[in-house]
Amino acid sequence: MRILIVDDEQTLLDQLRDAFEGQRYMVETALDGEEALDKLFENPVDLIILDIMLPKKDGLSVLQELRKAGITRPVLMLTARGETNDKIKGLDLGADDYLAKPFSLDELLARVRALFRRSGGQADSVLGVQDLRLDTASREVTKGGKSVELTAREFSILEFLLYNKNRAVSRFSLAEHVWGDAFDPFSMSNFIDVHIKNLRKKIGDAGHGTIIRTIRGVGYIIKDEAQ
C-alpha cells in the first residue's frame, strides 16, 4: 500500500515515514500543497494524509483539486485541535476522516487501517462488534438497534477501541487519545477505569466483559466474535 503524507514539518514527516515504513507501507512525502499535487498526478497512491496548514497551497485547496480531478483515494485530514470549521470544510470537500494535532501515533495508524478496510469493501462509516454499532460520521451509537447515549469521552474511548479491533490498547494510549497533553498519569490514573466502567454499563457489558475485555497489566481489547 502506498501512502502520501503531506506536512510542512520535516521532523514530523520523518517520524511518520519511519512509523509507516515499519508497518510495511510504501511512503511518499511532500512539504507543501503544490508538491503534493505534483506527486499525486505523477504517481497514484492508495491513501493521503494531508495537513490543512500548508505553504503555497493549503490542504483544503489540495483536497478540492484532487477530488475535481477524479482522485477518489481516501484522505485523512490533519487539523489544529479545536478547529471545528476546518473539519467541517474538509468533510464537505470529500475528506474521509480527520485527526487533530497533536495526535497519538497509535490512533493515526488505527485510522489509516480503518480507511483501508473501508476502501476495500467497507465503504460506510460504521464500526461495530456483535450488535453494537458506532457511526463515526453521525456520532451515533446503537446496541441491538437501540440508541445509546454516551459522553464525548466515552464515545472517544469506544471509537478508539473499535478502530483498534483485535489489537490490545494500553491504558496510556487510551488516556493520550481522550485527554491528549492534558493527561496527568499521577493525578488522573483512575480516570480511564472509571470511564470504562460507565461505558460498559451503558452498552450492556457490565459484569460480563464480552465486548470490552480487560488485559491485565496492559489495557483493553475489543475482539471479533469469531476470535
Rank of each mutant, 00 (worst) to 15 (best):
L174M: 10
G180L: 13
K201Q: 13
L199K: 06
T210C: 03
F186R: 09
G217K: 07
G180V: 08
I221T: 06
A182H: 09
D193I: 07
T210F: 07
I222P: 01
G204I: 00
I211N: 02
S173H: 07
A175E: 06
F183Q: 03
T214S: 14
V194W: 04
V218M: 04
F172D: 09
G207I: 00
W179H: 12
I222V: 15
L199F: 10
A182P: 01
D184L: 07
G180S: 14
V194H: 08
H177G: 05
Y220T: 01
I212T: 12
P185T: 09
K201E: 11
H195T: 15
G207M: 09
T214Q: 14
H177C: 13
F172Q: 13
G180I: 04
I203W: 01
G209W: 04
N198P: 03
D193W: 06
K202M: 01
F186S: 09
D205I: 01
G217F: 11
N190M: 11
I203H: 02
I196H: 08
V194K: 12
N190H: 13
K223Q: 13
H195P: 01
R216V: 14
R200S: 13
G219M: 08
Y220G: 00
F172H: 07
N190T: 15
I196D: 04
G204T: 00
W179P: 10
F172N: 08
Y220M: 03
A182L: 14
K223H: 06
T210G: 12
D205P: 04
P185A: 11
D224N: 15
P185L: 10
I196E: 07
A175M: 04
A182I: 07
A175N: 08
T214I: 11
I215K: 02
K223D: 13
P185G: 10
